[in-house]
Design a protein around this nucleic acid. Structure first.
Length: 880
RNA sequence: GGGAGCGUGCCGGAAUCGGUAGACGGACUCGACUCAAAAUCGAGCGCCUUCGGGCAUGUGGGUUCGAGUCCCACCGCUCCCACCA
């Protein structure tokens, strides 16, 4: 026998990747394929040029699912593409004078090569890039569908302005601290005319359908529900009085979630930005009001909305009549009222709203209690508003009613009397999609002085992004300065007109890419309906939690609009969603200087010191980032250990949805495990075992088995059962890998002692179960066991029997059965011993055996138990 | 303030329905092999113990023959929303 060979992943992986590619093993089967379709999808990356561990984790999880589903007999669509538009390309252009298109394409090529080294079973024929004209043409086409449906509009609003990126942002793109999701800059509010998509028209459906998304994490559904934020309440109209106190015929409409407190409204407040403030303000108040508005205008968004901030306001010298009580009450403006929620006008009910209470305290406005706690006529609030339900008082005909009942009646009566109506209010705002930047999809409309906004005719799409610009990063959209590009005749009347120079939010491009994969080369439509209806909804979507609201909400919206346009036939784009956790790495920080030290510069991991000043370093696990010098390069890991080890490690180290701590020692551990499998197969080969001559799968079951054979078969079929359950159920890749380890352990123990049929079954099963996780090693060992050496993989012309083209192993329930099982004996719920008993004993027999056992004798001291609980197959509990 | 999730050995993490807590891996300790080291193989590895056992899944109660799992209260951490009327 020759020297045992070593497991050298580099050569193996390159060879099989080439071979699989030649044979187009990962091609998506034709639509006519009889197998049931399965769509496995990863969130596509921004082509930054470098693959990081977060990407690796994302795509490896999806790849395991895709490979498993192929083995299980599905026709699998597993595509990849590029979220190609965006600011980094443009910023690189500004800093280095590069061309964003070239920069992006170069990055795509680089990242594609990095991805391919991971051995992902991606169908690269369906690759898309949102920044290529054959894609963005259809993004524009879809925009025109929105326009035609009345769901895209240009409107003036207070919008978020990112002073660093010099563009506006959607609400979803500003984080909880009021910072831009991209630049991290504090956003400013500006009143601008911009393009919006009317996502609010679908707010109700987007919210109501969330419970149907059973395959989504609860967390994501809750986040979306919070974001959409429905409030149930009413709009009430307060008649305006003129300077003489007579009804002017006009009224102010407020939104309230507590219409039952209307008798307690002692003032009405408008947002300072409200459009009617100027005309309602009396002459003698004008100066104060203007000064106040000015003051509020200078506050940042942060200052304005901080909850603990004192509420400020001024009366504007006008009055309204409380529509319920008839009382004349003053109009105020105040900084705690938001212009863009509800109607921008609030009724002040100090007794029953904490904000109104504080405001009334400050300005000595009357506090009128209209609800008291049940069974009490006491004042229910001391130093704060009474927010609970109770019994109505001081509310005319509603006195004595329970407040929920009064709520319904007041709304009904107000509606009948014409001064109110029930109303749902959403927190969700329309989606601001225009961006004053160059590297995005041009909005395909033309502004004509006489025809207004005119869509670019379909046959003139795409509106191509002009190339060869000098980008400076200042002074508004670069496109606006291109007179040649901007000046066009109006498509309707032919008069001189101007192109829209804003580009689209890149989230527009990513809101439909999953549809394009189903029909990636269609050049007459974005996609054929039959193709998307066949593949979608996506069976399993995998991506980061950071898109819980952004991309995932936008995509749900897009899908519904396209459904209503008849372009597709389903409601939800993603049936199952897995949000994978972050990949974190060990991070060293000098607590004195605040500087981060790269792990490579730390000499002794047990006593980490800053090489500069010898300061003891703080150790933590943090998200990998350049600034923390804690990044681990996937390329380097693959080079050292191979893609299979990287894949196995990342799957095993933590459950997919949890954060994962990258640790080199554990990577070594995974490499050792794959080496064990290598040696296991090698030892089997040395024994003359081969799969080439293997008979049918049931072979091993047919013969009379020895005890080790039965044990090994039990291990094999336990692994088949557990790995299948882990992957098909809640995607527990980590426990699936541990089941593979258990099987390998059992094989190391028993393989030498078993006959050929059982050994072959074990080897075959191990490699098939391993195939989704470590596809290269599984293929190499599979081929070797079929008599194809690595130097001469296969005779030309012979059919290539890849491990990835086999069927997932069949579970043989009979192999799991045992003759005897350990019966646990408990006394009063505590384990006191166990007894080997025949597996098929009935409850009465188990009870008898337990009572006769030494354990019973010892612990019961001769007294018969008061009670005996028998759990067949598991335990007997004796209760004295 | 509202909502969601989570607390298990030294560490990552296992534990269908309430039924032997700590699978699997890492780290560590000891042993074999080696001139030596690495690799490999074997053993040990929650805490206490008078070696009978006792105590252990954030804390305190409860339900149950039996609780990591169910219920109540509390403590701590993470995330989302938040002057949203």
């Amino acid at each position: 026998m020759s020297e045992p060979s070593r497991y050298e992943p580099a050569a193996i992986e390159a060879r099989w990747q080439r071979r699989w590619q030649e044979l187009r093993l990962d091609a998506t089967p034709a639509d006519s394929d009889g197998r049931p379709p399965f769509y496995a999808l990863s969130m596509f990356p921004y082509p930054s040029g470098t693959l990081h561990m977060g990407h690796v984790r994302n795509y490896v999880i999806t790849d395991v699912i895709a490979r498993l589903q192929r083995l299980r007999g599905h026709a699998v669509l597993h595509p990849m593409g590029w979220d190609g538009f965006g600011l980094p390309a443009e910023n690189a252009a500004i800093e280095r004078g590069s061309d964003p298109a070239e920069w992006t394409d170069r990055n795509i090529a680089q990242m594609r090569a990095q991805l391919q080294r991971l051995g992902l079973s991606i169908d690269w024929e369906r690759e898309v890039a949102t920044c290529h004209a054959d894609y963005y043409r259809w993004t524009q086409w879809l925009f025109l569908q929105f326009l035609d449906a009345g769901l895209a509009y240009r409107g003036e609003a207070l919008v978020n302005w990112d002073p660093v990126d010099q563009t506006v942002l959607a609400n979803e793109q500003v984080d909880g601290e009021g910072r831009s999701w991209r630049s991290g800059a504090l956003v400013e509010k500006r009143r601008l005319r911009q393009w919006f998509l009317r996502i609010t028209a679908y707010a109700g459906e987007l919210l109501d359908d969330l419970p149907k998304l059973e395959g989504w994490p609860e967390r994501v559904r809750t986040m979306q529900a919070n974001w959409i934020g429905r409030s149930t309440g009413a709009e009430l109209q307060f008649p305006l009085l003129d300077a003489d106190g007579q009804p002017s015929g006009e009224h102010l409409t407020v939104f309230t979630t507590r219409p039952e407190t209307v008798y307690g409204a002692s003032y009405v407040v408008l947002a300072p930005e409200h459009g009617l403030v100027a005309s309602l303000t009396s002459a003698d108040r004008r100066q104060n009001v203007t000064a106040f508005i000015d003051l509020v205008g200078r506050q940042s968004e942060q200052e304005r909305t901080a909850e603990d901030r004192p509420k400020r306001g001024v009366p504007i010298g006008a009055h309204v009549r409380n529509p319920a009580s008839g009382e004349v009450i003053p109009l105020w403006i105040a900084d705690y009222v938001l212009a863009d929620y509800g109607t921008g006008v609030v009724m002040g009910v100090p007794a029953h709203d904490q904000r109104d209470f504080l405001f009334a305290r400050q300005y000595e406005l009357p506090v009128r209690q209209v609800i008291i706690p049940e069974g009490s006529d006491e004042h229910a609030f001391e130093g704060g508003a009474w927010l609970e339900n109770g019994v109505m008082i001081h509310s005319g005909p509603y006195d004595g009613l329970a407040s929920p009942e009064a709520k319904q009646r007041i709304v009904a009566d107000a509606e009948a009397a014409g001064w109110g109506r029930a109303r749902l209010q959403y927190r969700l705002r329309d989606w601001l999609i225009s961006r004053q930047r160059y590297w995005g999809c041009p909005i395909p409309v033309i502004h004509c002085p006489s025809c207004g906004v005119v869509p670019v005719p379909e046959d003139q799409l795409p509106v191509r992004l002009p190339t060869g610009l000098r980008l400076e990063g200042r002074g508004g959209s670069p496109l606006a300065k291109l007179e040649d590009w901007v000046a066009v005749p109006c498509p309707e009347c032919g008069a001189a007109a101007r192109r829209e120079t804003d580009t689209m939010d890149t989230f527009m491009c990513s809101s439909w890419y999953y549809l394009r994969y189903a029909d990636a080369h269609n050049d007459s439509l974005p996609f054929e309906r039959a193709a998307v209806d066949r593949w979608l909804p996506v069976d399993q979507y995998v991506g980061g939690i950071e898109h819980a609201i952004l991309h995932l909400l936008y995509s749900r919206f897009f899908t519904r609009v396209l459904r209503d346009r008849g372009l597709l036939g389903f409601d939800e784009p993603f049936a199952r969603l897995l949000t994978q956790g972050m990949v974190q790495a060990i991070t060293y920080r000098n607590p004195h200087t605040g500087r981060y030290v790269a792990p490579a510069d730390v000499v002794d991991a047990n006593d980490p010191r800053d090489p500069v000043d010898g300061q003891r370093l703080e150790v933590s696990f943090d998200k990998m980032s350049k600034s923390k010098h804690n990044g681990v390069d996937p390329g380097a890991v693959i080079e050292r250990y191979g893609a299979d080890t990287a894949r196995m490690f990342i799957l095993f180290k933590a459950p997919p949805e949890k954060d994962l701590e990258w640790e080199d020692a554990d990577v070594e551990g995974q490499f050792r495990f794959l080496q064990r499998i290598w040696r296991l197969v090698e030892a089997a080969q040395a024994r003359g075992l081969s799969l080439a001559a293997a008979g049918v799968e049931g072979d091993a079951a047919a013969v009379e088995l020895t005890e080790p054979e039965r044990e090994l078969r039990r291990a094999v079929h336990t692994a088949i059962q557990e790995v299948s359950a882990d992957l098909l159920g809640s995607l527990q890749c980590n426990t699936a890998v541990s089941e593979l380890m258990k099987l390998a352990n059992a094989m190391a123990t028993h393989l030498e002692a078993v006959g050929e049929p059982v050994a072959r079954e074990a080897l075959r099963s191990l490699l098939l179960l391993l195939a989704p996780f470590a596809p290269h090693l599984a293929e190499e060992l599979w081929q070797r066991l079929h008599g194809h050496t690595s130097d001469a993989p296969q005779a030309d012309g012979a059919a290539f029997e890849s491990v990835h083209r086999q069927r997932w192993p069949q579970l043989d329930e009979a192999a799991l059965r045992r003759d005897t099982i350990p019966l646990v004996i408990q006394v009063k719920g505590k384990v006191r011993g166990s007894l080997e008993v025949p597996a098929d004993c009935d409850a009465a027999t188990l009870e008898r055996l337990a009572l006769a056992s030494e354990v019973a004798e010892r612990w019961l001291e001769g007294r018969p138990p008061r009670r005996v609980i028998v759990v067949p197959g598991k335990l007997v509990n004796l209760v004295p």
